[in-house]
């Protein structure tokens, strides 16, 4: 290979980085539009990731913080709470954090709790949150099985303010039809039930019927993603469209490991409707590395793949509540 060829190749490889750096002065986000299709087979549970954002409503720099009220450089923010929105931090110590907006003015947003590490000058973007309607259609265009109650219909579990909450599509029987809470099918429909930022969906399909395709469209988001997690179970979205592995994900740096599954945080991955639990073994007999929760002394599981499109069922049960996914190969 000649020196000229190497130079051209180097320039070609360098160009995207240069272009991104230039764009980064405005917004360090690659607005790559895409579509993700996930097949939801009958008689199976599926952990569905919601990796894309519908659009970026606003972006800029933080002008005041870190409190529950965050000043932003934009002075013309519109309504951000009639439909759920979130603010994601794109630089600084709080990089990757995305939290729901609970109130807003023309130049500030309010969040539930102060964002740790947020500082003036940090970049942000504001995006709409996913809802049942935005993912499955206001009237179940995806074609999940409906029914008069959850016992007959496909079940959907989402996180609302950290609590797993079940829904189904009511299409028969007494009362109005629409997206209903499993616990209260007689209550009004909730098509705009807000799915917590950076979380996914747990779908349980009943037997019979055909597989349905769930097509998600939007813009992919770059950089590390840091969802808020609560003690217990969390359905966390894998926001990336490239596969990575447990070992290469560096996830171990952001969760609590231990000598066994009982003293560690647990990561459950779904494949073919089967959930398998893993933990990071960071001490004790048998070396270190990812292990199956049901076989702490077994083989290393570093090569297990985090499949794009699949959410992660994360059980926060040890140490400080935290979770961060780095963007594969770049972060």
């Amino acid at each position: 290979m000649s020196k000229k060829t190497i130079l051209l190749l180097g320039a070609a490889l360098a160009f995207p980085a240069a272009a991104m750096a230039q764009a980064g002065s405005k917004l360090p986000v690659s607005r790559t539009a895409g579509i993700q299709r996930l097949v939801l087979p009958p008689a199976q549970l599926s952990l569905v990731s919601l990796p894309m954002v519908e659009r970026v409503v606003d972006s800029g720099t933080v002008t005041a913080g870190p409190t529950t009220t965050i000043g932003v450089s934009t002075t013309t923010l519109s309504d951000l709470t009639s439909l759920p929105h979130s603010i994601q931090i794109l630089s600084g110590a709080a990089l990757g954090t995305r939290v729901r907006i609970t109130g807003s003015t023309a130049s500030s947003v309010t969040v539930g709790a102060a964002i740790a590490g947020l500082a003036e000058g940090d970049q942000y973007m504001i995006v709409p949150d996913d809802t049942l309607a935005s993912v499955f259609g206001p009237t179940n265009a995806v074609g999940l099985r409906g029914g008069s109650g959850a016992a007959l219909a496909d079940e959907i579990y989402i996180q609302i303010n950290g609590t797993l909450t079940g829904f189904f599509y009511k299409n028969a029987g007494l009362g109005t039809n629409g997206w209903k809470r499993i616990a209260t099918p007689g209550a009004p429909p909730e098509p705009n039930a807000p799915i917590d930022p950076l979380t996914g969906v747990y779908v349980i399909r009943k037997a019979g019927g055909n597989p349905v395709n769930l097509d998600l469209t939007g813009y992919t988001v770059n950089g590390r993603q840091k969802p808020k997690v609560v003690a217990g179970f969390n359905i966390l979205s894998n926001p990336f469209t490239l596969p990575t592995t447990l070992g290469k994900s560096n996830l171990k740096d952001f969760i609590t490991g231990g000598a066994g599954a009982g003293t560690s945080d647990l990561v459950y991955l779904e494949e073919g409707g089967v959930l398998t639990g893993y933990f990071y073994k960071d001490r004790g007999l048998g070396g270190t590395g990812w292990r199956r929760a049901d076989n702490a002394g077994g083989a290393n599981q570093d090569s297990v793949v985090l499949t794009p499109g699949k959410a992660i069922l994360f059980r926060e049960q040890a140490g400080t509540a935290s979770f961060t996914l780095q963007e594969p190969f770049t972060d």
Partner: peptide
């Protein structure tokens, strides 16, 4: 693993 619901209905179907 969740969900920890028992969803029962005597409805036809």
């Amino acid at each position: 693993l969740p969900p920890f619901d028992s969803n029962f209905s005597p409805d036809t179907g």
